[in-house]
Amino acid sequence: MSEKEIITRLKKIVEPYVQRIEGMANFHEETDFLNDLQINSANLVDVVLDVEDEFDIEIDNDSMEGMLTVGDAKSIIQKKLAS
């Protein structure tokens, strides 16, 4: 799966949880879930669960803790898809 496709799918997953809509106009690897999109920690859990379903992968606690930006999420998804 291409990086572009992963990010496109990710954008669709996070959309319902975003509080700061402006953050979506400029959705790139440095976009930070908490600060740029204002997704709170409870909703970030739902984002991760949706990511698991969408990509058919399992995300462990350590990966979850390192998932602060879109780029972090993309790398984790790539790594899990490859393993």
Binding site: V45, V48, L49, N61, M64
Partner: peptide, 8 residues
């Protein structure tokens, strides 16, 4: 329980 993941 629906889920208990990442402390949620």
């Amino acid at each position: 329980k629906q889920y208990f993941r990442f402390n949620k």
